[in-house]
Amino acid sequence: MPGLTPTLGFTLFYLGMIVLIPLAGVFFKASGLGFAGLWKVITSERVLAALSLSFGAAAIAAVLNAIFGAIVAWVFVRYEFPGKRLFDAFIDLPFALPTAVAGIALTALYSENGWIGSVLAHAGIKVAYTPLGIIVAMTFIGLPFVVRTVEPVLREVERDLEEAAATLGARRWQTVLRVIAPAVFPSLVTGFALSFARAVGEYGSVIFIAGNFPMVSEIAPLLIIIKLEEFDYKGATAVAATMLVLSFLLLLTINLLQAWVRRRV
């Protein structure tokens, strides 16, 4: 088979120039701060608040997506209903819709005079310009991940298994809980992780609805931009490196967890 040298050569060159060398620059820059310097930046009150907000809100959004994503996947795999094709196409909207568009649309919807915001305001719930709004935006952009990872696995669950459980006397809920859920669980974890990772780094759809009040609704990516605008490159890099490492550790944990679950299957 011809073409290894040019294709692999170009692949490595392009990958190196666009991704690896620039990314390495972040860690190079961060290491310039030294551990003490890095620690000082990260443990500053404002950075800590931003990091815990980003990771916390992303976790809540990912949990929401895991729950509703599982229901959506179940409904789309198992049931027939009118408009199914259309809805199915729209599930990928967050992949296709620019984040800035999503951001202003969600803000318009959830602000106090928006369609949803005005209804919630009656109940005394304020979404836009609060951490709640951040969770809404993060749920939006992470929505397709769980659905799209769980769907194929759920489709693979053989109906035989469910029928077997029924012939053995299992009630429907027992079959769902003891036969289907364990089969789908690893993919649910993957979807959760992808949704979480996406939400942690999300910027465009969040900043419009967040309100961006320091210590309250200021997410970590925004803090990076603020530090850049103040020409605090080292501070910005420190926050970025911390985010990269934290996300990486989290994904690694989840991957290991998954490998452990898979080994038993």
């Binding site: 991704v19 910027y203 990076i224």
Partner: peptide
Amino acid sequence: LITCIDLPFSVSPVVAGLIFVLI
């Protein structure tokens, strides 16, 4: 190599911008 190709997916867009500012 495949993992490295996927890297930009797991990097926050803001961090992606930052790396070019650093350069």
